[in-house]
Simulated assay, not measured.
Amino acid sequence: MSSSLPVADVRGFFDPETYTISYLIKDPTSSACAIVDSVLDYDPASGRTSTHNADRLVDLINNEGLQLQWLLETHVHADHLSAAPYIQQKLGGKIAIGEHITQVQSVFGDLFHAETEFARDGRQFDQLFRDGDEFTIGGLKTKVIHTPGHTPACISYLVEDALFVGDTLFMPDYGTARCDFPGGNARILYQSIQKLLSLPDHIRVFLCHDYLPEGREEYQWQSTIAEQRKNIHVADVGESEFVAMRQHRDAQLTMPRLILPSVQINMRAGHKPPAESNGTRYLKIPLDVL
């Protein structure tokens, strides 16, 4: 994929409640589009969900006469709920994630003691991508890159000159993803990052979160591969040094505010757990486990 190929039209939508950026990718030569890492609003105090963030995307796609082909997930998020099923119901498209979702479903299916009917083979998603798979968004060629470390199922999407890395990398002045969730591995994350940094300098890098580090006044979520080579966690840092840094840093972090509801929803491709005999759906809170 060279810089002479069609440039993806990318628009980011920031959710200040979860510091998440969802993306609309449009093929400039057609009406085809895709969404990366959509957000379903969730109030942890009441347990209520709403669709403000998702409706922004739905309304934009409808108003511009676009055709949604893909609802792409970079991984099973621990900080926000996915709105993919809601958007799919409104606009169509296929919900996709990496094939290693099965590992996440196995681990968290046990942790949450999921219902017997909960499938752990990824069938809740329309498409499970393997490393190196290619597909299109209209005329935009897209390649899947397996980038585990934060979770075993993390993947990045290279859409022509635009790279969507999920939580693997943050802005160069903030660093890299934590690796202390079940299945996380700092050494593997370092190797995944090196794989991404081997891409051409000009590739645009789009991030899933920004937490506004001290000294910066505005949220940012776009960089380049050249800029990411100066990332404060990896610039001139070897693998062993990175692992030691990441393990020390992760030991001081608290769990994300929405990890318990998020993972239960997202391991189901954004679908809520089945209703119980009284017609109500429930999320579980495992005590003294995480």
Rank of each mutant, 00 (worst) to 15 (best):
S3D: 00
S4C: 09
S4H: 08
L5Y: 02
V10K: 00
V10C: 01
G12H: 14
G12Y: 03
D15F: 06
D15T: 06
Y19R: 13
Y19C: 07
S22R: 08
L24S: 01
D27C: 03
P28R: 06
I35R: 07
D37G: 10
D37Q: 13
D37P: 13
S38P: 15
S38H: 02
V39D: 13
D41A: 12
D43T: 12
P44A: 14
A45R: 15
T49E: 10
T51A: 04
L57Q: 10
D59F: 09
D59N: 14
I61A: 08
Q67V: 02
L68C: 07
E73I: 12
E73A: 09
V76Y: 15
H77F: 14
L81K: 01
Y86D: 04
I87W: 05
L91T: 01
G92E: 06
I95P: 15
A96R: 10
G98S: 11
E99F: 09
V104F: 13
V104I: 08
S106D: 06
S106T: 09
A119N: 04
G122P: 04
R123C: 00
Q124D: 05
Q127M: 01
R130S: 02
D131H: 12
E134F: 14
I137N: 08
K141W: 08
K141Q: 09
K143M: 00
V144K: 11
I145L: 05
H146G: 07
T147Q: 09
P148A: 07
H150V: 07
S156A: 11
Y157G: 13
V159Y: 00
L163D: 12
L163V: 11
F164E: 02
F164Q: 01
G166T: 10
D167W: 13
T168K: 08
L169T: 11
M171F: 09
M171T: 15
P172V: 04
P172K: 11
D173H: 07
Y174M: 15
Y174D: 15
Y174C: 12
G175L: 05
A177S: 09
R178S: 11
A186I: 12
R187F: 13
R187Y: 13
I188R: 09
I188T: 06
Y190A: 02
Y190C: 13
Q191V: 13
Q194Y: 01
L196F: 05
S198R: 02
I203L: 01
I203Y: 07
V205S: 06
F206K: 09
F206N: 12
C208L: 14
H209A: 09
D210Y: 05
Y211P: 06
P213S: 10
E214T: 05
G215L: 07
E217L: 06
Y219S: 14
Y219T: 15
Q222M: 09
S223W: 10
I225L: 00
E227A: 05
R229N: 08
K230Q: 09
I232Q: 14
G238P: 04
S240I: 07
V243W: 10
Q247T: 07
D250S: 08
A251Q: 06
M255T: 01
R257E: 05
L260A: 04
S262I: 04
V263S: 12
V263M: 02
N266Y: 00
N266R: 06
K272V: 02
K272N: 01
P273T: 00
P273K: 01
P274T: 12
A275K: 03
E276Y: 11
N278H: 15
G279K: 11
G279P: 14
T280W: 03
Y282S: 02
L283A: 00
I285N: 05
D288M: 00
